[in-house]
Nucleic acid binder design. Structure first.
Lengths: 222, 222, 222, 222
DNA sequence: GATGAATGAGTTTTCATTCAT
DNA sequence: GATGAATGAAAACTCATTCAT
């Protein structure tokens, strides 16, 4: 065959496969996995039901393929952003902005991503959740890398675990993304990016903030 | 009978109802709503299937009752904590700690709570999500109240919207709670409470931190 | 005890039994046997479900008791009317009128009566249909008797089988009763009694009987 | 494919649909709608339960399809008979005979027809009863038309409302059809057709029409 | 006698999956 | 390869009946 190129057959195959995945994504994210019959996916994708089973062994495989494709998009986009060479602060800000863009562009996708990353509604067999978590974790590590470099470059205070900082920044942005979701007019995320940076950085940036008040801990009431 | 107390009948009724809810909670959080047949709940709760339908009109009502009971616990506990009179900083810290306790005590419950608050897997009809969101929002407002008082008392910098700060703190803690969930040994949440306070407060607390670097924004790439 | 009288207990018992039957009649005739749960009868009759089973061994027995009570009412009322001593023509006219009154007074009852006399929807076990048919047949024979007497008295032409004539008159009236049911304003049954007599009698009456007799209508007893 | 004909697929579809309807008719008329589980229809029709639901959305739709098919047969056959050009008296007699034939040919169908037209046992939703009534009413109007023409042609006395006469004749025949149903040996309906005509016509026919015409019977077309 | 909570067999309906065309 | 009619296991839900109080 053509070396390293796909035959027409193969290209068609992939196109069809992606068409099915697109329809499935939309439906799953709108109604949830269990509320979408294969019949509906087939009809909406304009394939016969039997054809779907040519592409995916069963409903769960279709689902897995879908979620993995999503994870890859997320992973790829966010990772790329962090690899664009620039100032650490810029990287982080751009990371936050890119998450916002991903949200805006892929709302259905997002719901699914979070549901399956966090939730327990659908017990994904065979470690799909593990794969997702891992993909997410890789992004976090990439983010931690930025903090680490920043510390080495003395931009950031090196007291804290970079990975923990990554988790903090990521979850802070999640909070405002969901706020955006719920109250889009009142709390547009793009405007919150600065806020997040504000909240996050004064402490981490080197400065002479009196720490006494902040960290005094009384015994926990369990 | 007992004045202003429940009759034995009523007490039995409530006990049975709660037994069913407990079993359902366990099963739903383990396997997800759609993967738990009513028959299984019935069997595990040691009631006949028909009896379940005496207590809850249908499966969805059972589910709603369950989630609402959970939401109430959350709402009540977190609200109470914020009402204990004390220093604003203490209130916030205690809030974070209490969330941790709730997580630890009600893990199955949590998964369900987050799945249904955030996710889209199971489209809850008739505004259950609205109720949940509202309940969550009330806690956030209560939290915002603390920030507001702190601002009035000049402890906190009053530049920011208190509600937004509440969202920020809450989501930051969520991030570390989930981290705890995933890597309990490496990242125990209780120890992260200080970290959260650290990250969160240097900026908000009045101080003479140079802000220039933080907030410089380049044009957003939409 | 009071001889030949019922004790209070017994009177109460019968009163309750009839209350249940009344409620059941209404519900069955409105919705049909299979669409009325025992629970509903119990609630509407203001008895506990268990109490119903004290009165009737099971749902079918309740149903049978009901239908038999109806049949008796029908049978008794129509038979009585035919026994009031008078002219044959008067008897027949009064029979037709009485059927109309029974219809007007007991519409739900009627539907049930006809359904179970004619229909096949609910396979009544143990010959309830036979009993009903028989009861109906007895009325028809009583009616036939009138024709027979009239023939003997030379008022009616004796060519035809009196029983067949009874069937004819009865079914003719049924037709107009149903017409009344469907179009009460346009086709009130009471006004159709003469019509029925008209249609029915010119042939059967001996040619020399004055037609005046046929159509003379006495004031209707509403 | 075959021009203006059905494809094999379509023909198979209709054949299967009719097979299901036939089985359902038999079972419903034998035991009544509520006493026939879908499973039984499926098994007797030699289809899987799911297949039934491909043809009919639910049990009630299956039932409706069935009753409507019956009503159409009735409507079509009786209407056709009344359109065969001939003497009014012949038309009416042939109408009565045809009803007898329909009864004889479709006894199970009949029971169902009458049960659901008249009874209240099964509360047919969404105007099936209205459709049935209307279909029946159309036949009655067609029959009334015959009376009207006969009046114009001075064969019938024009004193009465033709529609009312139609109702009368129809219900009279119903009475004898049911008599036949109950006592087939003693009271065969075909022999009653003359009786019905006898009863019905002496009054309606103008006095000067030779009575001979009334009872002359041509050979029945079975 | 009266009660009504509890029962569970039986019903309708859905939907993932197969396979002959 | 593609099709979609057919399958039937499994789920939600109903309701006649029982029985401990």
């Amino acid at each position: 065959m053509q070396n390293n190129t796909l035959t027409r057959r193969q290209r068609e195959y992939l196109r069809h496969r992606n068409e099915i995945l697109d329809v499935a994504l939309r439906l799953f994210s709108e109604k949830g996995y269990h509320n979408v019959p294969m019949q509906e996916i087939a009809k909406k994708a304009e394939f016969a039901i039997g054809t779907l089973y040519k592409f995916f062994e069963n409903k769960e495989e279709l689902y897995k393929a879908l979620v993995l494709r999503l994870a890859e998009t997320f992973h790829h986009t966010l990772t790329s952003v962090l690899e664009i060479p620039s100032d650490e602060m810029d990287k982080l800000r751009r990371f936050l902005q890119t998450k916002g863009d991903l949200f805006a562009d892929n709302l259905p996708m997002i719901r699914l991503y979070f549901t399956e990353t966090r939730g327990a509604t659908f017990n994904i067999k065979a470690g799909l959740d593990t794969q997702l978590r891992q993909s997410h974790d890789e992004v976090l590590h990439k983010l931690a890398e930025v903090f680490k470099t920043g510390m080495r470059r003395k931009i950031f205070n090196s007291a804290a675990d970079p990975y923990v900082l990554a988790v903090g920044l990521d979850s802070l942005s999640n909070g405002f993304l969901f706020l955006w979701l719920e109250k889009p007019k009142e709390h547009p995320y793009p405007e919150k990016v600065d806020m997040i940076m504000d909240i996050f950085f004064s402490q981490i940036l080197r400065a002479d903030v009196p720490k006494a008040k902040i960290s005094s801990v009384e015994p926990k009431s369990t």
